[in-house]
Design a protein around this nucleic acid. Sequence first.
DNA 1: TGGATGACCTACA
DNA 2: CTGTAGGCCATCC
Length: 110
Amino acid sequence: MTIKPKSKPDFFDKVYKVVEKIPYGKVTTYGAIAEVCGIKSAARTVGWAINGAKESGLPCHRVVNRNGELTGKLHFGDPNLMEDLLRSEGIEFTDNGRVVMEKFFWQPEL
DNA sequence: TGGATGACCTACA
DNA sequence: CTGTAGGCCATCC
């Protein structure tokens, strides 16, 4: 554990809540989460927060980057897990290996 | 207080 | 498409 979000889960708390609200078969982006949290430019910090969220049992596999790419797939332990989970939820991928944001993008809200 | 890290974003060549 | 560069923010030491 290189992180201990136990002292001030200030920012984390919001991220956890948003990620937890992601509906089945939908995906959101780091920037969108950061934006809802009130800090649109803290997309990086969101990813960092989710880094700890993955061990919290959150559907972090529904979080992708602005391009719809599964940037954090490598952090799931298995690179195929993330894509597999999304496909299992009915999410489609393009030839570029990206999620079809146009249809599966979900706008997070508190 | 400041440097280092991080699953990002945007812009440009 | 790839690489480089800057920025933006939270947390840790």
